[in-house]
Design a protein around this nucleic acid. Structure first.
Lengths: 257, 257
DNA sequence: TAATCTCCTTGACACAGGACAAGACGATGC
DNA sequence: GCATCGTCTTGTCCTGTGTCAAGGAGATTA
């Protein structure tokens, strides 16, 4: 059982107190705060604090106190679980507008690390919990987001438990395409995406090894399903329909996110 | 890729309107309603409705409207996802006091089926959503429960993605023991448990085949780690420490549920 | 231009767990 | 008692993915 390489631990936080108006925030429409009214936004604006992490930095460790919660404004965060012998599984992948942290509990049960350069808009945890009680719009949005994440996690359980390597990779490409279609609006025939994760992290996310991921990507390229450019990170999905089939979407017509 | 057997579809609901006092409810302390005050309980009591399902019955199907939400009072519910070719993964396993249903969305993305005879205490979904808004105690408890479930799902992601068959089975036994220690209070040296799932469902839960589960159980019995009685459902964990090791608990001391 | 470094790809081989097949065991009914 | 049925176990073989190992490609630095 091969262990994953110990990450070059350029570990800790680069804090950068800064202020930018919520009004013009890029994730204003989708974050936890999106249902708050003007008055509530003022309160949040008063106590928010940006934190910046460089690619590879550890944002928080499993079991340790995490004194803040917040929203991913820029970049991607991987939530990972490690086993004693080094096996590693990414158990959550956060994009801009996703919520990070664990309200109602002082610690988290996974590590959180910055995949690329990350900016978080954070609130001190206790203060946020107080605001949850005082601000129904905040609590109900957080509930909705948590329920959605739970649905996503269950989808991932199907992937890890039953899908083949090919299906896992095809699925991942589809997910990234869907998620990036929200940020930039570009869903045409052949979809071009930029992978948020390198091969190693894709493997960690999909419950595979880096070699298997690489081989699947190569095979798909040879079969004309995808094209690659600029190293291995930029991928064009040539035949999205076939890819979707290959992803092993479930049979019935459940209207999934 | 072998397909799972189509379940003998003794499909639909046995509804049984009935009334039992919330006061003496067995899950009073742990369910969504547990933080409600006496007045709020009266309201809930007025609109609640028990529903009964026999073992094997389908409670709800993926993509279909699920007009109620509620609490598992008795029995176990499996949340499953199926692929077009019949591959099946259990993506959630609900015990007494767990919440079932999907507020804030008319449908669910998985099937829910009664593993054994099940009793649910349900509320009409829209009414429940209204109550959520009007009853902070209800909403905050639901949020807390959803966050816990998300943590549990992430733990399961590690299991499915990285643990070996042996570790998966040991893990499952541990989880059942922990969960049953809540219901009945019996955590002595050698722990006796009753498996809520048969071999087939254990396999569906753990991302394995029934044969592999069976072989692991046999191997553990031969190694003296467990003992079995009354068919295959009653298991005594002889060496809980070794079993815990074998489960591949993560290295660091995260205080997990 | 060469020396590194990091990340990705490719090849050869091994093995855990899947597929298929045949029983065994316990419960139920006649 | 004996047949039947569902569930679990066991045996044999096979294959998808992991492991180990080497090499390529692009970026960075000297």
């Amino acid at each position: 059982m091969r262990q994953s390489h110990p990450k070059t631990s350029n570990s800790m936080i680069t804090t950068e107190p800064r202020r930018a108006p919520c009004e013009s925030c890029v994730v204003r429409e989708r974050a936890v705060c999106s249902l708050c009214n003007d008055f509530e936004m003022l309160t949040l604006e008063g106590v928010k604090r940006y934190r910046r992490f460089e690619a590879g930095a550890t944002i928080a460790m499993a079991g340790e106190a995490l004194p803040f919660v917040g929203t991913v404004v820029e970049g991607h965060v991987a939530l990972t679980r490690m086993m004693a012998d080094g096996r590693r599984q990414i158990v959550g992948l956060l994009f801009a507008s996703d919520f990070i942290g664990r309200p109602l509990r002082p610690y988290i049960t996974y590590d959180a690390e910055a995949v690329d350069d990350v900016v978080l808009c954070t609130f001190e945890r206790h203060r946020f919990e107080t605001m949850l009680q005082e601000t129904p719009a905040l609590e109900s949005k957080l509930l909705a987001m948590t329920l959605d994440e739970l649905d996503a996690a269950r989808e991932a359980l199907l992937t890890l438990g039953r899908r083949t390597a090919r299906e896992k990779v095809a699925n991942f490409l589809g997910m990234v395409a869907r998620r990036q279609a929200l940020d930039e609006a570009v869903p045409v025939g052949a979809v071009k995406i930029v992978l948020p994760l390198g091969r190693e992290d894709m493997a960690s996310f999909l419950g595979l090894t880096i070699e298997t991921v690489s081989r699947q990507m190569t095979a798909m390229r040879r079969e004309g399903l995808i094209e690659m450019a600029n190293g291995a990170r930029e991928v064009t999905l040539v035949n999205t329909d076939l890819l979707a089939d290959m992803a092993g979407e479930d049979g019935d017509g459940a209207p999934l996110g």
